[in-house]
Design a protein around this nucleic acid. Structure first.
Lengths: 231, 231
DNA sequence: CGACCATTTGATATGGATCAAGCGATGTGG
DNA sequence: CCACATCGCTTGATCCATATCAAATGGTCG
């Protein structure tokens, strides 16, 4: 639907790989062996590479091995709303209906595992543990989106601080957050403009709540202060 | 947690009813027989009656028979965000985790069917159709919340019009929408103030897009015009 | 009738958007 | 190796949609 400007997708048909599937390095996930690891075929996407489009048949389920993925919708007036960011270990593209509700793109060079949804469904019909795992994944997604709703009704500063906490919790690395996405991506996730995101981060730095060694790295050097700020 | 001001809950312990369960009038739902109808115990709540609180163990699943339910969170600064409205036939309170993510209240006098979550889980472990139904319910909830996110990043007019379309689609009754909830409820669902909701409705009426016979009844008398307005 | 509560309407304030320019890193061709 | 184009980000000035504050209206129930 929306052609990426600098797509360098290596594969475009996930079905083209069914061999050589058992030799992945273990992805950064709490679950080291599951249906997707067992059955998944590796695929790679370049920066801005389109993984699937909104409204397309949801025939495949994906798990991030490395890199980052964003899902989004483009509204009628051209504005883009980002639904989620997916980091290594995260599953995305799992739909209960027949179509993808959002489009998905790689933010930077990204490797994923791909598995046919029908294969998972067949497995789930026979194995209640797999069925439960699919349900759990959908439930985690639901919880995440509910948190997102709460973020979206707050002030700009609360949204930005909430986003920083969210990212810090997902990639525990002390107080340093490494952002794989641009300011525009953050703005479109938070329902703000790029200018407001930038200004808010600058303010937080002036108040000594964060440090900005560079634009993609943020140090949460005063968590109590940040906690005060996020409602 | 939050005591309702005029609670008139008839039952407070759903487990107190296990007999007399097969004689409900069929609720307005596309699914006339399911686990909840088969196993559910009836309960009633008065206006503003608390059904469960955020953070409480999610031991029961509910289906609306009559009336309307809202789920909500109260933010740190006292603002209330409504997560969803549930109308007759809708299932709510089904959590994948162990706790309720939102609080639930009856908006007006409401009857529900209640079933133990553990009973559904046991059934699902043996019957993959039940498992699939639980997953489908969670997936529908996910789709609804994703739509809600898209609403929340639009302008006030777009949010209000989107809300009217949402309600009209859920209770197909020609172009007339009967609102069970107050302006404050609508405002807290849309992330707006009550004044902005009221003004927006007045504007829509002036533009002959809707009619307001009274504050709880809205006629969508110009759908093409409304469609233009909601991005 | 009168009290109460939900809703509407009016006046003003403000947070974030918009418009516009500047800055710093990265990469490319001469 | 440097001039220069490009891109992502920051900063500044102004505007506007919506919040806030305040009061009037209207419907409901004792």
């Amino acid at each position: 639907m929306l052609m990426p400007t600098t797509s360098t997708a290596v594969h475009t048909a996930p079905a083209s790989r069914t061999a050589a599937r058992a030799a992945q390095p273990a992805p950064a996930s709490h679950k080291l062996t599951g249906p997707i690891e067992m059955m998944g075929a590796p695929m790679s996407f370049g920066r801005n590479g389109e993984i699937y489009g909104e409204g397309e048949p949801a025939d495949f389920v994906y798990k991030v091995v490395s890199g980052t993925v964003r899902t989004y919708k483009v509204l009628a007036d051209g504005r883009r709303q980002i639904g989620a960011f997916y980091l290594p270990g995260d599953v995305f593209g799992l739909e209960v209906g027949e179509e993808h509700a959002f489009s998905a793109e790689a933010i930077a060079a990204t490797r994923v595992l791909v598995v046919r949804r029908s294969a998972l469904m067949n497995l789930a019909a026979r194995d209640s543990n797999v069925a439960r795992e699919l349900w759990t994944l959908t439930g985690q997604e639901l919880a995440r989106v509910q948190e997102h709703i709460v973020l979206l009704v707050k002030t700009a500063q609360e949204r930005v601080v909430g986003f920083l906490f969210e990212m810090a919790a997902r990639r525990p690395a002390g107080d340093t957050v490494e952002l794989p996405m641009s300011r525009q991506d953050i703005a479109d996730y938070l329902g703000l403009t790029i200018e407001t995101v930038s200004r808010t981060l600058t303010n937080l730095e002036h108040e000594h709540a964060i440090e900005l060694p560079n634009s993609r790295r943020i140090v949460l050097c005063n968590r109590p202060a940040l906690n005060e700020m996020h409602g």
